[in-house]
Amino acid sequence: MIPQQNESVVGIDIGSRSIELVVLDSGGPVRQVKVPTTFDPLGQCRKLMEWTGGMRVVATGYGRKLFAESFRLEKVSAITEIQAYALGTRYLHPEAKIVLDIGGQDTKVISLSDTGKVVKFEMNDRCAAGTGKFLEFMATALQVPLEEFGGFALGSDRRVQISSMCTVFAESEATSLMARGERPENIAMGLHAAIVQRTAAMLRRVGISTPLVFAGGVAHNLCVRQLLEEELRQPVIVPENPDMVGALGAALYGRNLDRSET
């Protein structure tokens, strides 16, 4: 049981694949938890919320509305992931000018002003092509654990061209490459390169600037990070806990609500 502190606020990011929770007190984040979303996101949230009684909670991610409606807490609000990632990134890297977030089912590029305000953003449409979901499917197809998929791809000796970004088409493309005897590492590299190309195009639409912060679950993937740096010819900053940035941003938003009320 965590001692209840009045100044503590909770940020919860209910994504398509995982739920992250950050508890923030006056000194900064004091607790960070990540659980899978499962088929029962509310049940998962309920477990996470057991010891946060009385604290202000700010929800973000796809489940934000469901959360705010289901947990009729006294102090609950919801913000979009774009706002949350902007706030979280600003806190961790105040110098950041552009944020790339690749999550379970979407990719977002957010450009920040000198004062950290969202100036412009892009987000993929309904299709989860080129997101964490895509990597997960492809890792499964190549029978590599998702966490090791980036490292696996870096073991390639040549890059094969994968032109499809659709999960279903890319899988057939990978299958025909396998049938031609291509090494799975090379296919994995091709899949990673396809994601990076698509992401770079989105970054260019918003306008590439530096420093660039790469957050969201896919930022754990070493191969995506490396290819992105090569493609953009600039360093990419990855926060220590890249998937916590949204929950952190939500908590920071909550803290400012608290402050503006007192």
Binding site: T80, T115, G116
Partner: peptide, 27 residues
Amino acid sequence: QLRTRIEAFLEMAGCRSNVRFANSRLN
């Protein structure tokens, strides 16, 4: 997905008070 994009866009359009929070380093 559209809701997220549109909400974020309206947030960005600066008409909600939360924008000012981003203007100062939080901490």
